[in-house]
């Protein structure tokens, strides 16, 4: 007999060892998230996936599902918090959607749409983060990094290269490139790396692609973030 927990009033089945988020997504139930990726171990940093488990907040991407637990996700309160977190992500970096080549393919933008975000609400930090354009095929635009660590995990766990790392703490944390010069060109990063294709926003960019895909044909012109997550799961199986 499969075990279940209750998510917003309906039963969700799970297998032992699955997190709330994994089980929910598998059952076609969407919980907003940014630093979770089905292929990697959870990181639990963006907190967008926060739910209430038996009345107490928890990150659904790290919390294991247990039988009979009562989970709330689609509540006004939780979505308001998710919206605020998303707005903070926008003001902490430099996200100018109209001129960003990742626009329409960006999970942060799609999540913002999903949450009904219409403005940034908070004051922009306008951080000064120079680009790393040293690599012949890839550009790093740190202005848009949301520190989800997906590239770090992909490079370390799948590519076995350890090209990226997170350094600093709190407000000072930032993405670094693990080479002596700190430049991407001095690593063995390559197009075929998993880390080259995993960034949910517009940091790790294939050079000279830019706006090659016309408006109307981009990922989120055709799908919502929920549909995107569903198909991504489908590809896994």
């Amino acid at each position: 007999m499969t075990e279940t927990f209750r998510l917003d009033g309906t039963d969700v089945p799970f297998e032992a060892g699955e997190t709330i988020l994994q089980a929910a997504l598998k059952a076609g139930r969407f919980i907003p998230h940014l630093c979770h990726h089905p292929e990697f171990r959870p990181h639990g940093s963006c907190k967008l996936c926060t739910v209430k488990v038996d009345g107490r907040q928890a990150a659904s991407c790290t919390r294991l599902a247990t039988s009979g637990m009562k989970v709330e996700s689609e509540t006004e309160e939780l979505n308001a918090e998710r919206l605020a977190l998303t707005q903070m992500l926008f003001v902490e970096g430099n996200h100018f959607c109209p001129s960003c080549e990742k626009s329409g393919d960006c999970q942060l933008q799609a999540t913002a749409y999903h949450l009904g975000m219409t403005n940034a609400h908070y004051d922009h930090f306008f951080p000064n983060r120079p680009l790393d354009a040293s690599h012949p095929d890839f550009l790093l635009d740190f202005n848009r990094c949301i520190l989800c660590s997906l590239c770090v995990r992909a490079s370390r766990d799948i590519d076995n290269k350890n090209v990226f790392g997170l350094a600093g703490r709190g407000m000072a944390s930032h993405l670094i490139v693990n080479s002596k010069s700190g430049k991407l060109v001095d690593t063995d990063f390559s197009v075929s790396d998993k880390a080259a294709h995993v960034c949910p926003v517009g940091v790790i960019l294939r050079k000279r692609q830019g706006f090659f895909i016309p408006i109307g044909s981009r990922t989120f012109d055709k799908k919502t973030i929920k549909e995107y997550v569903d198909t991504r799961l489908g590809e896994e199986d």
Partner: peptide
């Protein structure tokens, strides 16, 4: 200055 060239045609529209 300091932006990738392929971004410029979109950015300058502002």
């Amino acid at each position: 200055q300091g932006r990738p060239f392929w971004e410029v045609p979109v950015m300058v529209q502002r």
